[in-house]
Simulated assay, not measured.
Amino acid sequence: MEVNAIASMATAMEQTKTAQEVSVAVLKKALDSQASTASALLDALPPVTANLPPHLGQNINTKA
Rank of each mutant, 00 (worst) to 15 (best):
T49Y: 10
M9F: 11
L52E: 06
Q58I: 12
A30N: 13
S33M: 14
K28L: 12
I60M: 05
A10H: 11
S33G: 01
T49R: 08
L52K: 05
A50Q: 04
D43E: 11
A35H: 14
I60E: 08
Q58N: 04
A50H: 03
P54H: 02
N59Y: 03
E2M: 00
E21T: 15
A40N: 10
T62P: 00
D32L: 14
L41N: 11
T49V: 00
N51R: 07
K29G: 07
Q15S: 09
Q15Y: 13
E2F: 01
I60N: 03
A5E: 07
G57R: 01
P54C: 05
S8P: 02
I6A: 11
M1W: 06
S23F: 09
A35D: 10
N61W: 01
Q34N: 15
T49S: 09
V22W: 08
H55D: 10
A12Y: 04
N51I: 05
P46T: 02
E2N: 06
T37G: 10
A19E: 12
L42V: 14
P53N: 12
S39V: 01
A19S: 12
P47W: 07
V3C: 05
L56P: 01
A25V: 08
S23P: 00
Q34S: 12
P47E: 09
I60C: 00
A7Y: 03
V48E: 06
T37C: 03
A19R: 10
